[in-house]
């Protein structure tokens, strides 16, 4: 299995770069994954990443984009609860990219 190095520590990832062990995650891993894709994580990014982690903790799944959009709108305000806002933050797809940085598996049904 492939791995990435963050602050001198090795983290196993799958063939698509998703963290193998959810419990190993730390914010620096998210930062490193983002940096590898030329992304700088702002507070707005972290709002979404933290939300995804909390959602996974509660329901044991990463939410589908439609569910994420609705939930973000409800929690962080209507102006953020749309796919335009989320795709601006995560151009490769909010489900795919934000879940990766959050150390979660790829959302169920996401290809």
């Amino acid at each position: 299995m492939a791995s990435i190095e963050v602050n001198g520590k090795q983290f196993e990832v799958d063939e698509e770069g998703y963290l193998a062990n959810l419990n190993e995650w730390e914010p620096a891993v998210g930062e490193a994954m983002a940096a590898a894709e030329d992304q700088v994580l702002t507070d707005e990014h972290w709002d979404i990443i933290n939300f995804l982690r909390e959602y996974y903790e509660e329901y044991q799944i990463a939410p589908a984009v439609r569910v994420l959009t609705k939930a973000v709108g409800k929690r962080l305000g209507k102006e953020k609860g749309n796919s335009k806002y989320l795709y601006e933050l995560f151009p490769y797809g909010p489900g795919k990219q934000a879940c990766k940085y959050a150390g979660l598996p790829k959302p169920t049904g996401c290809v």
Partner: peptide, 14 residues
């Protein structure tokens, strides 16, 4: 084994 019972609570979101 993974406890997937919490996921049933997410069905409403879907």
């Amino acid at each position: 084994q993974k406890n997937f019972s919490p996921t049933y609570s997410a069905l409403g979101d879907y």
